[in-house]
């Protein structure tokens, strides 16, 4: 591999790097408690919460497990579960 002047590389490298691997705990949404208020989507610093047909899902490829969504959830519908291998 040759380096480039200014470390210029093709765009969109985040598609190749799944930063979700940094996570040591994962948010799990309990759908029975979720009121679809959207707080989690708003506070996620990685844009890793999506809405599909009014159901909130987490993109584990990019969720770093910070826990902001679980902290802000007004109905405590998000649980942080330790990642284990």
């Amino acid at each position: 591999m040759k380096i480039t002047l200014g470390a210029v590389v093709k765009g969109g490298t985040s598609l190749d790097y799944k930063t979700g691997s940094w996570r040591d705990q994962r948010p799990v949404i309990h759908e029975d408690l979720c009121k679809a208020c959207g707080q989690c989507e708003m506070v996620c610093p990685d844009n890793a919460v999506y809405v599909v047909d009014e159901v909130y899902i987490i993109d584990y490829d990019y969720c770093k497990g910070c826990g902001l969504c679980a902290y802000e959830c007004p109905t405590d519908a998000i649980e942080m579960v330790p990642e284990e291998k």
């Binding site: 380096i3 480039t4 200014g6 470390a7 210029v8 590389v9 765009g11 969109g12 490298t13």
Partner: peptide, 22 residues
């Protein structure tokens, strides 16, 4: 090289210990 919306590039991408000296 220049910033171009039609040909996106990353500038100053992350460099680890194997390339920073270079």
């Amino acid at each position: 090289n220049f910033l171009d919306v039609n040909d996106p590039k990353t500038w100053g991408s992350y460099a680890e210990d194997d390339v920073l000296m270079e």
